[in-house]
């Protein structure tokens, strides 16, 4: 039963990742695409957490942690050097 729930949630999340690609590809603005990356990142983190339990590989939680840390860096890297002086 719980395996079924986990599988269904995993499938739903990967489909959502696919749906999110519409924003990655369609944009229209650069910020939209970066937003889509953020969502894909969080979805991947969710998937990794689910898979960590489903496949009984706790190390995947470490991978999720690493993704979370780099998600903020990507946004920082994107806006780097573009901001106005206050």
């Amino acid at each position: 039963m719980i395996v079924l729930v986990l599988d269904a949630a995993c499938l739903a999340l990967i489909l959502l990742l696919g749906l999110g690609l519409v924003r990655v590809i369609a944009g229209p603005a650069a910020a939209d695409r970066i937003l889509a990356i953020q969502l894909s990142g969080t979805t991947t983190v969710g998937l990794l957490l689910l898979l960590a339990i489903r496949l009984e590989q706790p190390a995947l939680i470490h991978a999720a942690l690493v993704f979370v840390l780099f998600a903020a860096l990507l946004a920082l890297g994107f806006v780097y050097g573009t901001e106005r002086k206050p």
């Binding site: 990967i14 990742l17 690609l21 990655v24 590809i25 944009g27 695409r33 970066i34 889509a36 990356i37 894909s40 990142g41 991947t44 998937l47 990794l48 898979l51 496949l55 590989q57 995947l60 991978a63 993704f67 990507l74």
Partner: peptide, 18 residues
């Protein structure tokens, strides 16, 4: 657009390795 696609590709590649 290519860079964004590449980053998302990286996410999916990680899932594939899993």
């Amino acid at each position: 657009q290519a860079i964004v696609a590449f980053i998302v590709l990286g996410l999916l590649l990680a899932l594939s390795w899993v």
